[in-house]
Design a protein around this nucleic acid. Structure first.
Lengths: 118, 118
DNA sequence: ACTTAGTACTTGGCTATACAAGGTACTTTT
DNA sequence: AAAAGTACCTTGTATAGCCAAGTACTAAGT
């Protein structure tokens, strides 16, 4: 149990959330996503991104089309589907709750129990 | 790929972070933690918490002592070790970075690349 | 004394993600 | 042709959280 591993675990699911957000803003291909995530200091490697994109597509949350490139092999440009947008909305709510809840714990504000504490 | 599962994944690592925070505030036993996490709307079940506590103890991040209870079997009261405090400090930094970074992505502020983007 | 209910802790099997490392394929440059 | 650069893909490993079932101790009811 080391810090690095726990940091990896912390990012689980969040990467998926971030990817969906990036795709929701318009057509992008994998390297665009990697650049944005890296710039935002959320490190992601190819071996994580590609399988994730495949999962998202199989789940019908995103779609893609091949586009020729002037400087290399063709690229897969991804776009959101309607299901993907709905999915993302739910994840956004979850993420906000999680940040708020964790913030309460961290800031030592013991959330007041609504009901009686026996 | 459903919302529930992704929500579970999102919490990975964060639960460990929250537990360490709670223990860092003073002696607590498992049910105290469950109550606080549940109140903060971070759902955790026994089957998650107990193995986690065992991992933390084996890693030397927390310690515990048995305390008799007036209303049931004895309880394990947990406390932080020095290693645990250092570990928690690193996780806190990671968590803050992650929230900030994700916030940037979500709020659509495409982080400006420092270097040229061809 | 025996049973029931409540509390506390434990364990085994399952699933899913992230990562490392290696691989395939297309295009341009030398 | 060969090398370099770009883009996409696959396999194997480790780990965390969940579900479900189980163990054990205490107090209260019969």
């Amino acid at each position: 149990m080391n810090v690095e591993n726990t940091q990896v675990q912390m990012r689980k699911g969040i990467i998926e959330f971030c990817i969906l957000h990036i795709i929701s803003r318009g057509e992008v291909y994998a390297s665009d996503m990697l650049l944005e995530l890296t710039t935002a200091k959320i490190m992601v490697v190819e071996g994580t991104l590609y399988p994730l994109l495949t999962r998202l597509r199989k789940a019908g949350l995103v779609d893609y089309k091949w586009v020729e490139s002037k400087s290399g092999p063709p690229r897969k440009y991804y776009t959101m589907t309607e299901n993907g947008s709905a999915f993302l909305a739910k994840l956004s709510a979850t993420w906000n709750d999680l940040v708020t809840s964790t913030g309460n714990i961290v800031s030592n504000k013991k959330a007041q129990p609504k009901a009686k504490r026996k």
